[in-house]
Design a protein around this nucleic acid. Structure first.
Lengths: 336, 336
DNA sequence: ATAAATGGCGAAAACGATTTATATCAAGTG
DNA sequence: CACTTGATATAAATCGTTTTCGCCATTTAT
């Protein structure tokens, strides 16, 4: 690797001057600056990020933390897309990303220790279990963080509009004449809470009675569980006309359950999902769902995190909500 | 952060001794070693990875390179699972991973420059376009690399058993009585070549005539294109009884095309995919496909890459093939 | 004309680790 | 007893940057 010293030798100046020229300090003449920039380019110079980090205590590296319990993390389209836009934006701003996890290496460091070891400048936390010890340590550490879909005191959070999204979905199916609505919820989490709140509010404001027997606890991203619950719901004598699934992926389980019961969508029963993943628009009938703007969420998360890093004086408490949009498929039928 | 010096001061020894004790060198007495290890633990010491990297020229960081053309990279289940197992294995061995791409930061570095800038110890390359300039530079640089599903001279490659997998699929459908087989290929690539080879070999050895009009060029991971091609294939007067799709994801397009044409699977036509992604076993009818062992591929890739890094003397030319397995769904019917 | 301010540059000290060469002291050897 | 050996420990150089401080030569102000 070509270093500052190499340039300094070739140009007959000191390394200090080269460093300053390349970093745009003002106490170097235009002439020498030109000369040095040119030499740097010709010699193919790139700063050694480790040396720079050692001196400045800034790595230009962002930690990505997500709980990988079932190993489904990356295969979850929501995370994959989020990560993708986060990464793209971060790179544009000169930051790389590194996965942060626990149990790294032979000394089995904790997640927070991992952050410290790699000296990440900031961390984005996007996962389902925000109550874990791991998350707690990082959130209460001294590294700037941004969370996705969960709010901590005095920390920046980027939120999908879960409550409003759910309301829009309810409004939509109600406008189609449905009043007998069942809802299979996802795992206990703030996201699930928000969606439930939206669901209930919308129902109540539309004068719809929320039947507690039709409010089931399921899992996110779990077609099998959803299959079971759908069957259970639809084998009762009193049946809903519309089913809300935990999310689009789980909805596939619901689709299969209905098919296995000989029920067709939307003729016999209507179905809505949540997320707007690609598959939801490929299956048949197309799923009516609420598409979260993952690209925007990731992008804003990157911007916010980097702003937090580069302008520490900024008042940090902020909740930014990103709107999604309803995707009208053909899984909900017009009643009567 | 607590540094070696902090420990040395507290224990009344030199930093050199602390360093040696912690790194397991032999020229330090058992007594002082104990004392120092204990102190390090108590003080919550973790080495500063930047400082260490600066001195040793080893970052314990692996670069992950994949072409993100359509932005579908991470959302592609094959890559997501591969990356996941790669990352898990790498972390167990003390390595972190960093995405390597082009256009980083304000000086728009090339992919190879990015590697140099971050000083990654090795790079895993998994992408569709191995002919790009970016890949070329990295492959011909001085950084250890491992490629997935593509072979470069004198480089380690981990290959999925594309040829054998295809043969097994052909054998399977032939055993079900099919002889009229159409094949929609994926993008031009070594993977596509291998699969085509497997397809042709198996057909020929079974005495099946490969109808060139039924050998179409499609795209991987592209349901829309596959939808079109499927419709085209099935609107000819002479129809195949079995369709080979580029991959499972694309197969959804095929399913939809057939459904839209009023054809049912497998009664009117049989379908097989490739990959074994989760969805393939969730759709109905379950897709018969060949499941690539992504977990194993990723794991082996990590092991190989790290071995290349840590034992540079190892003879490096190696092609490791990882077997998959046929997943029997219900999308292929028994003929006659 | 003298003093003060300015502009351009370099010397040197960090940052936190690893490593080489060296020093110290004990014990073992002839 | 003088000498080598071996075991421990240390000092100091080094990796490639950044940054503070000071130096010198000009320019500007007094």
């Amino acid at each position: 690797m070509v270093s500052l010293k190499d340039i300094s030798v070739r140009c007959g100046v000191s390394v200090a001057t080269v460093s300053k020229a390349l970093n745009g300090h003002k106490d170097v003449s235009a002439a020498t600056r030109e000369k040095l920039l040119k030499a740097a380019k010709e010699m193919g110079y790139f700063p050694n990020s480790q040396a720079r980090a050692l001196k400045t205590n800034r790595t230009h590296n962002l930690g990505v933390m997500f709980l990988d319990e079932a190993g489904s993390g990356l295969t979850h389209e929501f995370f994959a897309k989020l990560l993708n836009s986060f990464k793209t934006k971060a790179e544009m701003l000169g930051y790389d990303i590194t996965f942060i996890s626990k149990g790294m290496g032979k000394n089995k460091m904790s997640t927070y220790e991992h952050c410290k070891y790699r000296n990440v400048d900031g961390v984005i936390i996007a996962c389902t279990n925000f109550t874990s010890q791991d998350v707690y340590e990082v959130v209460n550490g001294d590294i700037p963080i941004v969370t996705i879909d969960h709010i901590f005191d005095c920390r920046t959070a980027i939120m999908s509009d879960n409550e409003k999204g759910m309301q829009k979905l309810v409004d939509y199916v109600v406008s189609k004449g449905h009043t007998q609505i069942a809802y299979i919820q996802g795992n206990k989490s703030s996201v699930a809470d928000k969606r439930l709140a939206g669901f209930c509010k919308a129902c109540i404001s539309r004068g719809i009675n929320v039947n507690s027997e039709w409010l089931l606890c399921g899992d996110y991203h779990n077609p099998d569980k959803t299959y079971e619950l759908t069957k259970m719901l639809m084998s009762q004598k009193d049946r809903p006309t519309c089913l809300f699934m935990p999310d689009d992926y789980s909805a596939i389980g619901g689709y299969n359950a209905l098919k296995d019961m000989g029920l067709s969508i939307p003729e016999d029963v209507s179905v809505v999902g949540y997320d707007g993943i690609a598959y939801s628009q490929l299956i048949s009938p197309k799923l009516t769902t609420y598409s979260q703007d993952t690209a925007k969420i990731g992008e804003i998360a990157a911007e916010q995190l980097i702003s937090l890093i580069e302008n520490p004086q900024t008042t940090f408490t902020e909740v930014i909500t990103v709107d999604g949009e309803l995707l009208e498929g053909s899984s909900v039928r017009q009643l009567n």
